[in-house]
């Protein structure tokens, strides 16, 4: 059964690479700028998936202390009982920062559309060359 457990353990690692490839393909291969932004979001969430996967533990519960089983005395906490809170903290802030990044990118898209009237990359390059 060790082989099966090893295989299951690598699911998340392989899927994060697949999602990252999809995002990278959208960023490099697609010509529409909104599509590129969608790809950037997928890329970002694939990295978050990778880091959150590092925090998971088998047979562990969510990182909130179980209170009330013996009133008064502090429960003795074991590290193996709770999932690792540190990667979760780092990614919690990364998600909210991602919204700020997306907002700035969308603002730039609106400015580009107002000035050149298109969001397709090849037409955009042509119009930039024409207007100088």
């Amino acid at each position: 059964m060790a082989g099966l457990a090893d295989l299951i353990g690598q699911f998340n690692n392989v899927t994060y690479v697949v999602l990252m490839m999809i995002g990278f393909y959208a960023m490099t291969g697609k010509r529409n700028l909104v599509k590129k932004l969608v790809g950037m979001n997928i890329f970002q969430w694939s990295i978050i998936l990778f880091v959150v996967s590092l925090s998971a533990k088998r047979d562990a519960t969510i990182p909130i202390v179980l209170e009330g089983n013996n009133a008064g005395a502090l429960p003795a906490l074991e590290a193996a009982q709770y999932v690792n809170p540190l990667p979760q903290v780092l990614m919690l802030t990364a998600i909210v920062v991602g919204v700020a990044i997306t907002g700035v990118a969308l603002a730039l898209l609106l400015r580009i559309y107002k000035r050149y009237g298109t969001l397709e990359e090849d037409q955009l390059l042509e119009r930039i060359r024409l207007t100088g």
Binding site: G9, N13, A60, A79, P85
Partner: peptide
């Protein structure tokens, strides 16, 4: 390249993986 590199990563859910054994036990306990 990334898949080749990530095959050496600790398995998901491993309680003794390096990220879970350095500083986070101190936080939890």
């Amino acid at each position: 390249l990334l898949i080749m590199g990530s095959l050496g990563m600790p398995a998901t859910g491993d309680p003794d993986s390096p990220p879970s054994s350095h500083v986070s036990p101190r936080y939890i306990e």
